[in-house]
Amino acid sequence: MVEGAKVKNEKLLEIYRTMVRIRTFEKATRELIKKGVIPTRMGFYTGQEAVAAGVCAVLKETDQIGSTHRPLGHLIAKGCDLKKLMSEICGKETGFNKGKAGPYHIFDPSVGALGANGIVGGSVPMVLGYALAHQLRGDGGVAVAFFGEGASNQGGVLESMNLASVWNLPLIFVCENSSPDVQTMLGHKINYPQISVDKISSRALGFGMPGDTYEGWDVMKVYRAAFEAVERARSGSGPTLLEFKVHQLTGNIEGSLEFFEDESMWDPIRRFRRELMFKGALNEEEDRWIRTSEELKVKEAVEYAIGSPEPNVEEALRGVFVEE
């Protein structure tokens, strides 16, 4: 098995930092929603950080991802600029998409974040095209399709698995199963199950590709699984389906400016920090430095977004076509 055992401390800390960045950014985003600065409600990724951080740590800037309507983790892990990201969520002119996308439709081609999607499973068929372009150009690039357990039942997702497999595309399907024990939808315990199998990854067999299920709260398990799948894709051996079990943590953000943390064993950040400290890769002081510096970056992003101008109102009617 892969380089897993000898992942350098530097890489581990980079992954940890990404996870902290995602959580800190989301915390700030929740606060801005409460204050009415952000004009929408949105899906959050809190508790799933290990998946985005672990998978994207294996990717290059020239690889692409397709995301979901819990996109912040994926976008941040893929390297999106925090200022432009927060500006977009605030609907500002300086956002990635001039304030027209909002959180559910963000596209940042400069880092291959293509893109968040408001339709459950909607981005997955497009990821086929990213992978196809890499295959045709022979540039060794890969593409990752992030989706949730709900999307795993969408026809487009299942069709995409078949097409990726028959065309042997350099693509990794990453299913984040956020109700691995009790089947829920938007926190509601549904009265019929929605998944017909114990493991969503077992559906890979039906499409002729490898697939397995991992604990998505353990970032090193995510990283190793992603490393192997990405290597397989890059070497021309085709797609893989990775299922990561995750728990969405809501936590308490009332009035506290301290780093938000969930006490449960499912919190991937808390878990990874303990692991890093046990290994001697991180001490208390370094940890404080990482958290503080990420808080500072997020604070700057918030200030930038708040200080940015609203888009010109006429922009509402522009840009339907390239050649209008």
């Binding site: 293509l114 068929p125 497009m126 990821v127 086929l128 196809l132 593409a143 487009g156 995409s160 097409l163």
Partner: peptide
Amino acid sequence: ETAFIGAGIGASIL
């Protein structure tokens, strides 16, 4: 159709 039109869209984005 969903998959191959999606593939076309993705390739066009690149």
